[in-house]
Design a protein around this nucleic acid. Sequence first.
DNA 1: AGACTAACCTGAAAGC
DNA 2: TGCTTTCAGGTTAGTC
Length: 292
Amino acid sequence: MPELPEVEVTRRQIASLLENRVIADVITTKPSYFFLTPPSTLKRELPGRRCERLERRGKYLIAHLDDGRRLLLHLGMTGQLFGSGVASVRLLSSTGGGTLAPEQQQRAFAPDQHTHLRLRFADSGREVLFRDTRKFGKVELLLADQASERLDKLGIDALQVTGTLLHQATRARATAIKNVLLDQSVIAGVGNIYADEALFLAQVRPKRAAKKVTLQEHERLAAAIVAVLTRSIETGGSSISDYVRPDGSDGGYQDERRVYGRANEPCLACGSAIKRIVIGQRSTCYCPACQR
DNA sequence: AGACTAACCTGAAAGC
DNA sequence: TGCTTTCAGGTTAGTC
């Protein structure tokens, strides 16, 4: 679900709830795929710790604790962070709820069976809740000096990418350019939506062999990636299936999509029908006329 | 090393 | 109505 913009919007909304607060209590669901660190360990180790800073790297959130340890959070496909007291969540049944009044679209957020982690704070009485229906998300507590393979292999943050860097990364790669954009060890933060959107803006076909993409095209791609992600953060991210911001409101970028999820609809630039193909098991949309 | 696949899990929507 | 299939914004382990 969440790519860099959704994770960054989440970070900005959750940071003030988390930072400089002491964790008093931890509530979890039972052990699962979701917990890289067992729930019992989290319950034992987190209470009493103060969170100093909430950082984002690619699609990861990192809560820095006062004893030097770090709590790693990844939202996977369906993960959401909420703050209680200010949080609400859109009713799951209200698909395309644009016709409903805001108070009908949202209700106070109550923890359910998909709410796998709850951090309660001593001083504010509030809590941060991590909900994840499909459990593709991850929670991991890293020791003070523990290296993280997951973090260490991340490439440059997508907001910092440059054409030169992309050009070097694709030099020896025969795979489709879109696969490289999705490779978190090259660029951290781009996912399926923004890969398609950036390729459209740069007028590059997603299936082009990466090593055949020119430096000039890579420059256009890098600029398009930064532009698309920046604009999406400004609008609050994309609320397409079930992403909502931590305060329960929808993002706005889904209304600015040019290709993603628009198969068979007219290209906004030239009117041609947007085409849908599959690359690397991921749905891919592009304009066959605009993108070469 | 790079490319490709299957797998992790749940629910909504589409198809019959 | 109800059952089955398809599809999702991500990552990783395993194979060639």
